[in-house]
Amino acid sequence: MKNAEAVTFGGSGLERAAHLRGDVNELAKMRADPNAKAIVFWRGKPLIRRGDWDVLARLPMSHSLLAPRAEQSVFLGLEDHGPTFAHDISDWEPEGVDPSLMNTFLDPTEQQHPEFPETDVFAELRANMTRFTPRDAELAVSARALYSWHESHQFCSKCGAKSEMAMAGWQRDCATCDGKHFPRTDPVVIMLITHGNSVLMGRSPGWPEGMYSLLAGFVEPGETLEAAVRREVFEESGIKVGHVDYLASQPWPFPNSLMFGCRGEALNTGITIDPVEIEDAIWVSREDMMLAFAGENPKILPARKGAIAHFILERWLSDRLD
């Protein structure tokens, strides 16, 4: 697909400087660099600076709250100003937090740390992802995915002992068995399945009323992307798929996926859903989808803006898939 990198989180060409991750002396110099900056996360939420145009907040590494955590910071790469790191302060306990809203489909709450500028708030990434520049988006998606991985992989998968962060956040090492563990990314196929002038859409339990998106599912071991598309679509909807093409990809740090956008041709139209997998599946005509994107369809809402499903559907509607 032309301009596939235009998808949200599609990358900005960040110089990740992977060769510096294991250089202890160089990392110490970069952390002490007066030009070094840090982005900050709290329980999966990035620190966003509100203004005329929202940006990912960058604080000096010397900030009184961040400096004591310097050894636990994650090195993300080199920007024009110098090195950029990420800090996680999830141990902070703000007042008035409603636990029922945390880690929901779309957490509407924002938190303001008293030691940060009043313009800076922790906010849910999915609700703000389309407001970021490509660089801010790449930094945010990388850091969030890494922190999700560290949170769920604190013990060695070889011997079960506690592992420790290494390589500036890009590895975990086990001192007991010398095991080395690397960030995990789960491949997921998400597919535009069409039949004539219609596209197959589905919804999961718990989604907002009327919201539908493209079908998606995890790629299994020993499986190609094409085979995963055919299997997942048939399992979820009973639709058999013929030819399959790859379109575009998107890092999706909720928590650690890489979405492979594909398109396929349906060989039948009779839908039989698997209620364990999805709540509903329907065929939507191009005309009805255009109304949904315009906010004028009374029955369905479009896929979330910023998600690769929205990106693919938008290009399908405008005949820009090739």
Rank of each mutant, 00 (worst) to 15 (best):
E296Y: 07
S249V: 03
D280K: 13
A292P: 04
M259C: 13
T269D: 02
A266F: 00
V244A: 13
M259Y: 03
L247G: 04
S285N: 05
I273A: 08
S285W: 05
E287L: 09
I312R: 00
A266N: 01
P255Y: 12
W252K: 01
L291W: 10
R286I: 09
C262T: 10
V241D: 04
N256Y: 11
I312A: 02
M289I: 06
P275T: 14
E279G: 13
H243S: 14
I239G: 01
E277D: 11
A303M: 07
A307F: 15
H310C: 07
N256I: 11
L301P: 05
F311I: 08
Q250M: 04
L258A: 13
P275Y: 13
M289V: 06
L247W: 01
I278C: 02
A292K: 04
T269V: 08
I271Y: 02
G238W: 01
G306A: 10
G270K: 14
L247S: 05
P275G: 10
A294I: 12
K240V: 08
G242E: 04
L247E: 07
I300W: 05
G261P: 00
P275Q: 12
P251F: 06
L258D: 12
H310D: 15
G264M: 01
S249Q: 05
E287T: 11
V241F: 00
P255F: 11
H243M: 14
S285V: 07
L258H: 13
L267W: 02
P251H: 07
M259N: 11
V244F: 08
R304L: 13
P253C: 09
K299I: 09
F260V: 06
Q250N: 05
Y246Q: 09
T269I: 06
M290K: 15
L258Y: 14
F254D: 12
M290Y: 08
A309W: 01
A281R: 02
N256P: 08
G261K: 00
V241K: 03
H243L: 14
F293I: 10
I239W: 00
I308P: 01
K305R: 15
K240G: 03
I273P: 04
F260W: 10
P253R: 02
P251T: 06
D288P: 01
F254C: 09
W252G: 00
F311N: 01
P275V: 11
K305H: 13
E265R: 06
G238V: 06
L291M: 12
D288C: 05
R286T: 12
T272Q: 13
P298N: 08
P298Q: 09
W283G: 02
M289Q: 06
G242D: 03
S257L: 12
G306E: 06
G270C: 09
H243V: 14
T272N: 14
G270S: 14
V244C: 10
W252F: 15
A266E: 01
P251K: 03
Y246F: 15
G261V: 00
P298Y: 08
G242W: 07
T269K: 10
D245S: 14
D288V: 08
A309S: 12
F311M: 08
D288Y: 07
K305E: 12
W283Y: 04
C262D: 01
S285K: 05
I278E: 03
L301Q: 14
T269L: 07
Y246V: 14
K240P: 00
L291E: 15
I308F: 04
T269W: 02
V244N: 07
D288E: 15
G306K: 04
Q250V: 02
M290H: 13
K240D: 07
P302M: 08
A294Y: 11
I312H: 03
